[in-house]
């Protein structure tokens, strides 16, 4: 009998933060599709909107959301579609169908990164200990995202709400290190 592959997370069994005001939870296996195309081409924008429900955001460092799908701005011609676990195949298929014949790139990068959700009254203070971004609410709020460095690890940070809640997308190979760093950084708030 063939072995059945089971999805495992690099953070399985990792002890979390004890601080109620800065909680870390892993959201593994979220579908992530890297999408590239020309935002000046209305055929591209319309096709993505048709497939996903939201057009790719043109404004830098912003996120477009439609239902459970989010499209995060990564660059002037690059986005990351974040979709629920297990939905990446369907989403990729919908994009390929809608964008057929166009000069685009659609790559399923689901397994490259995992997602750590950090939330609570002190979540911002924890991030500020290791991230050079200006995270003050006047500069970075819900619906915004940014690629930067957190404790020397490359991360993609997406603010979800004013709690504040952040989704931190990090390469799986850095995730244990970053998880332990976050748990340690949150200690002073417990």
């Amino acid at each position: 009998m063939a072995d059945t592959a089971t999805e495992t997370s690099p953070l399985d069994g990792r002890a979390g933060s004890r601080a109620d005001s800065a909680v870390i939870v892993e959201h593994p296996h979220l579908g992530k599709i890297d999408l590239r195309g020309d935002p000046g081409d209305t055929a591209f924008v319309d096709a993505v909107a048709e497939a996903i429900g939201a057009a790719p955001p043109i404004v830098a460092n912003t996120v477009a959301t439609a239902g459970k799908n989010s499209i995060l701005w990564l660059g002037p011609d690059e986005w990351l579609l974040v979709t629920p676990e297990g939905n990446q195949g369907q989403a990729e298929g919908a994009l390929r169908t809608a964008l057929e014949g166009q000069h685009v790139s659609i790559v399923d990068t689901t397994d490259a990164r995992t997602t750590i959700r950090l939330h609570g009254a002190n979540a911002r203070n924890v991030l500020m200990k290791g991230c050079p971004l200006d995270l003050h609410p006047r500069a970075f709020g819900p619906g915004q995202c940014a690629q930067s460095i957190l404790a020397k690890a490359d991360v993609l940070i997406h603010q979800l709400d004013d709690a504040p809640t952040y989704d931190i997308h990090v390469l799986c190979s850095f995730s244990r290190y970053l998880w332990d760093w976050l748990a340690d950084a949150a200690k002073e708030f417990s």
């Binding site: 830098a60 460092n61 002037p76 050079p132 971004l133 690629q147 930067s148 460095i149």
Partner: peptide, 16 residues
């Protein structure tokens, strides 16, 4: 801190 104004992302720290 030394800020560089990325033409795409806006002002960011030099270490990026």
């Amino acid at each position: 801190m030394f800020l560089i104004d990325c033409p795409y992302c806006g002002p960011r720290q030099q270490t990026e």
